[in-house]
Amino acid sequence: MTRAYVKRRIKDVSDVIAGSILLCFSLALVFYLVPNYINEPPILQNPMMSPRWLPGIVGWMIVLFSILLILQGFLLDRSGEDDERQIEKGSTRRFILMVAALLIYVALFEAMGAVFTGILATLILFVAHPVRTWWAYSLAFVFPIAVTFLFVKVMNVPLPISPIGF
C-alpha cells in the first residue's frame, strides 16, 4: 500500500489516527478496565445505580464516536478547516531543552527546593530559545525567589525548600 494510495483513500489521516487510538482505548476500557478496575457491590436494586454503569455507557459511546471519527476521516476532508493543526517545527535542540526543564521540575522539585529548580529550569529555557538580552537572565533568579516568597510567606502556601535552606 503506497503513501499515495493511502492519501487517496483517506481524506483526513489525523482523524483516522485519532479515531483508531480512541477506538483501541475505548475497547480496552469497556472490556478490560471497567470490569477489572471498578468493584461492583454484590447487591444492586437497579443496574443504573452501579458504579460501573456510567463508565460503561461512556465507554460504549466513545466506541461509537471513534468509529464515526474514523469514518469522517475516510469521507470528509477537514484539513482546510483545521489549519491550526499544521505547525512548522522548530529546532530539536530547543524542544529537548524544554523537556529537560520539565524533567528538572518533576525530578528535583522536592529534593532541591522550589527556588533552586525554578532558577535552573528557567535558565535552561532562556538558553533554549535563546534569550539574547543579558539582563533578562537576572529574571531567572529574581522570579523564583520572589514567587516562592509570595507563596510561602504571603499566601501561606508551603513550597519545598532545599537542604541548604532556600
Binding site: F109, A114, A121, L125, V131, L139, F143, V147, F151, L159
Partner: peptide
C-alpha cells in the same frame, strides 16, 4: 518576548500545581 515570558509562566504552573496538595 515570549522567550522570557514562557519560562516564568512554566514556573507559575509548577508552583501552582504543587501547592494544591504539596505533592509532586
Amino acid at each position: 518576548p515570549k522567550s522570557i515570558l514562557f519560562p516564568i509562566v512554566l514556573m507559575f504552573c509548577v508552583y501552582g500545581a504543587y501547592a494544591v496538595n504539596n505533592d509532586t
